[in-house]
Design a binder for these strands. Structure first.
Length: 197
DNA sequence: CTTGCGATTCTA
DNA sequence: AGAATCGCAAGG
């Protein structure tokens, strides 16, 4: 088990996105150690990417974290009710990030179920189990992440990503990013990466 | 201050 | 297919 270091994140966003697949993310909260495997991500490549929040060099209080050091968490609120988790990449001043779209629970699934539904896992419907954390809003709900954790460092005691050492027999699926129709030609870039599980 | 809308989710 | 729901950014 090897914790990803700063250099891992300070690289090309597409590469980091692909390499995050299959890695384990740890978040400790309220005495619980929540661990998930990353299965679905999207790359947002900064000022030249029409779908990116920093497109055209846009720098606002919300996007400030993306302009900073790689390996920090960029968490923002979407549609007034859901949080989305991103990992900042590239060198400082090159505001890019990887959106975590989907994960599967590895440890403390029961706690995640409480976070999300206030129930025990066994009480969930088949539909709820199947779609437990397969969307960016769901990932944050399950882990208990919200805007308050914006700017957290992925190189800290409470939040980090590690390589579990298991080999990656997975085939990486490439597709178009979701819900960015406004981004014109950038909407067609194949910058969504996922593994099956 | 006002306005328009979004890297979504759930239900019908 | 539609509603829920509000922070954020841009413009006046």
């Amino acid at each position: 088990m090897k914790i990803l270091d700063r250099k891992f994140y300070q690289r090309d966003t597409i590469i980091v996105a692909k390499e995050l697949l299959g890695k384990h993310m740890v978040y400790k909260k309220g005495g619980h150690e929540l661990i998930v495997k990353i299965t679905d991500v999207e790359a947002y490549t900064g000022i030249n990417d029409k779908a990116c929040h920093t497109y055209g060099g846009k720098r606002t209080p919300r996007t400030e974290v993306m302009w900073g050091l790689a390996g920090h968490a960029y968490i923002y609120l979407i549609y007034g009710m859901y949080a989305c988790l991103n990992v900042v990449t590239e060198e400082e001043g090159n505001p890019c990030a990887v959106l975590i779209r989907g994960v599967v629970p590895i440890k403390n699934r029961e706690q995640m179920t409480m976070n999300r539904y206030g129930k025990v896992y066994a009480a969930l419907s088949a539909y709820q189990k199947k779609n437990f954390s397969n969307g960016p809003g769901k990932v944050c709900l399950a882990l208990g992440l919200s805007k308050e954790q914006n700017g957290m460092d992925f190189l800290s005691d409470r939040l980090y990503i590690y390589d579990s050492g298991e080999d990656m027999p997975y085939e990486i699926h490439e597709g178009k990013r979701i819900n960015i129709d406004y981004a014109e030609e950038a909407a067609d870039y194949l910058w969504r990466f996922s593994i099956h599980c």
